[in-house]
């Protein structure tokens, strides 16, 4: 009696040569195909979920691609109107402010009014500080005594007495 291994060799050789199987080998093969293990596999394959064709992923991909596309160039006038409007408004506000108030006041030192305040405060401080002494304008207006008036007495003159 041929064993399982001999039948397998015959089956492989027949498949290789594309020749019909011997009747014994054919019965053996049918019996094996009807076995429980084969039915289990066949049942598992039959129960597999049926994949249905979906285009949802393709739609999502299209949307992504549209987003990544460079934006179309806008016309120049649609870009320019906002800065032009802003600049115009700012210029109008400045013009109105300037016409209402005139030139902006300069610093204390540069305006006559500032100079008057400074002179007033400085004079008061100078008089406080100087006491009986001279105040700045008296120092500034000083002119030296005429040459002929300067008699330079010294200890030598006293020694002669």
């Amino acid at each position: 009696m041929k064993n399982q291994r001999d039948f397998d060799k015959q089956s492989l050789a027949a498949a290789w040569d594309d020749s019909p199987l011997a009747p014994d080998a054919e019965r053996m093969l049918d019996a094996r195909l009807r076995g429980d293990d084969q039915r289990l596999v066949s049942h598992a394959v039959a129960n597999l979920e049926q994949d249905e064709l979906s285009m949802a992923w393709r739609s999502t991909l299209n949307e992504r691609l549209l987003e990544l596309q460079p934006a179309k160039r806008k016309a120049w006038w649609t870009l320019a109107w906002r800065p032009v409007l802003a600049t115009g408004l700012a210029a109008s506000v400045l013009t109105i402010a300037f016409l209402r108030t005139g030139p902006a006041p300069s610093s204390h030192a540069e305006s006559l009014e500032g100079e008057l305040i400074r002179i007033h405060l400085d004079s008061a401080a100078a008089l406080d500080l100087a006491g009986t002494g001279l105040v700045p304008h008296e120092v500034a207006s000083a002119r030296p005594a005429p040459v002929e008036e300067e008699l330079d007495w010294s200890s030598v003159d006293l020694d002669l007495l």
Binding site: E113, L116, A124
Partner: peptide
């Protein structure tokens, strides 16, 4: 107290003087 009397040739801006003083 100290008072200072100024005399100038041009017009003075009183409000500016007040602001600065």
């Amino acid at each position: 107290k100290r008072l200072t009397l100024f005399q100038v040739e041009k017009d003075l801006d009183t409000s500016r003087l007040g602001r600065m003083g």
